[in-house]
């Protein structure tokens, strides 16, 4: 059971579902269902087996040209090899962070990387303000610069426990544990039902789940 592996030609970047399953919270069948989703996303503009930035934007916004600071950050974090595209293995490993069963600590770490725009190891006040401004630009909410400064200042004074003008990973963790709603978007309940959402994986399945 679960021992049959064919050598069917797969797209570049394809990885063995059993390996991906071992490294993530997904079962083999769930990885295969994710492959169905991946095939759909990675062929929406250029059918080459990789998710390009425009395809990612198209899936998120129904608009291939809609740039968004946060979508850019998510794309960059998913692109573990930093080669400008998301490969299947990167897709599965990164989505694993969003699985309901993934430890909160992993989600907190991912969110920190997301918000550490300049990748300095700290979330700085300027970065926080840049993100608030970016969020306002994509929403209908209009706030004066003075109000934005007050929001950023207040948040920073609560999160920057050491008061050194920057939020480190430890401070971020403490802050999120006090405000768990901050990482609500790091959990996708959908991932628990992925085999139901993409049942066609059954037709293409090479491995029978042993779980």
């Amino acid at each position: 059971m679960g021992c049959y592996h064919s050598k069917k030609a797969k797209s570049p970047g394809y990885e063995d579902p059993s390996i991906l399953s071992a490294e993530t919270p997904f079962t083999v069948n769930e990885v295969e269902a994710l492959h169905e989703l991946f095939k759909k996303l990675s062929s929406s503009i250029i059918d080459d087996g990789f998710i390009h930035k425009e395809e990612f934007q198209l899936a998120l916004f129904r608009n291939r040209n809609k740039r968004n600071l946060f979508a850019d950050r998510v794309f960059d974090l998913f692109d573990l090899k930093r080669n400008g595209v998301i490969e299947f293995g990167e897709f599965v490993r990164s989505l694993g962070v969003f699985h309901p069963n993934t430890p909160t600590e992993d989600k907190i770490t991912f969110a920190f990387k997301l918000y550490d725009l300049r990748q300095t190891g700290y979330i700085e006040r300027e970065e926080l303000k840049d993100m608030v401004v970016a969020l306002l630009q994509e929403s209908d909410l209009v706030l004066s610069d003075e109000v934005i400064e007050i929001i950023v200042h207040k948040t920073f004074s609560e999160a920057d426990a050491k008061g050194d003008g920057r939020i480190d990973q430890e401070e971020w963790k403490e802050f999120v544990l006090k405000n768990p709603s901050l990482i609500k978007n790091m959990t996708l309940p959908y991932l628990k039902d992925i085999t139901v959402a993409f049942p066609s994986f059954v037709l293409n399945s090479e491995v029978e789940d042993s779980e």
Binding site: L37, L41, A59, L60, F61, N68, L69, F70, A71, D72, R73, V74, L95, F98, L114, Y115, L128, M131, V132, A134, L135, E138, S139, L141, L143, V147, I150, I151, V152, K154, T155, F156, E158, A159, F175, N179, S181, L182, I183, K184, N185, L188, Y190, I194, A197
Partner: peptide, 26 residues
């Protein structure tokens, strides 16, 4: 809710760019 009482990170977390559930929409 008055905007000044908002937590900046809470505000940011509402971004559409961070809402990956859209990836699963058919």
């Amino acid at each position: 809710m008055a905007p000044v009482t908002m937590n900046a990170f809470e505000l940011i977390s509402t971004s559409q760019g961070l809402n990956l559930s859209s990836l699963f929409e058919k």
